[in-house]
Design a protein around this nucleic acid. Structure first.
Lengths: 122, 122
DNA sequence: GCAAAAATGCGACAAGTGTCGCACGATAAA
DNA sequence: TTTATCGTGCGACACTTGTCGCATTTTTGC
């Protein structure tokens, strides 16, 4: 799975909270974290579509965006990348570490653990 | 501190093991992990010099390279980036997580912990 | 029905990165 | 000293990413 860049991740976080959303809605929520123009939000969304990170649907003449990658899967992949590529760890990191993240709900911890333990293809 | 890219990190890991080294030596060790040409190793080294990741010294007519950023500092920065940017965690991650990494010696755990606990400037 | 506001479709540009290749001076081996 | 090798200095090119702007088409509030 393609790893999202920093701004892309912020957009995904929004969509994970609630989707679908329009570019305008995403932009308005995003603006607090990323100070850039509406054009930048749109272009980033377009590129995320190309990468498969979001799906783009036409609703009449408007477009609406949905996250196309799963939250826990992305978080797990990024974590495993750090563990493996940076720390060269072979054993999986404990989920406990991330239990405090408000991004991860209790019910999701199990899934995160499962994914963390799963050996990834390099 | 500039975060190293993936290939840059591999080079740093080599230098942290033993430096200074020549471009040739680095390349020969690196080739097992990264399959690219000697030119690529050299260019990457050159760019790392510009970024301040390595220092480049002339020894006679040859050049030798030294890591210019500290191992534990880099590892801590990358870890904190994940915790904060990805998981939006405020409390620091426990060092225990990385105790198994062969990159981190026991004596270094303390320093890593100190750095992990240190709030970073965003 | 029309003008203002919003959404789209694109194109653009600079910076950063991955990845080479080539020409030239320095060195070491024959 | 002549040559084969090695190291260095650069330039180059394609792609990705950050970040916009503009011209058109739609939508919508009088």
């Amino acid at each position: 799975m393609q790893q999202p860049t920093a701004p892309e991740l912020e957009i995904l976080k929004l969509l994970w909270q609630k989707h679908p959303r329009s570019a305008r809605e995403i932009h308005d929520s995003l603006i607090e974290k990323i100070h850039w123009s509406y054009s930048s939000t749109r272009k980033t969304l377009e590129r995320m579509g190309e990468k498969g990170l979001v799906s783009i649907e036409d609703q009449g003449n408007k477009k609406i965006y949905n996250a196309r990658v799963e939250k826990i899967a992305v978080l797990a992949a990024m974590t495993k990348d750090l563990a493996k590529r940076v720390f060269e760890l072979d054993s999986p990191l404990p989920v406990a570490m991330f239990a405090d993240s408000h991004l991860v709900k209790d019910e999701e911890l199990e899934e995160l653990e499962r994914l963390l333990n799963q050996k990834s293809e390099d």
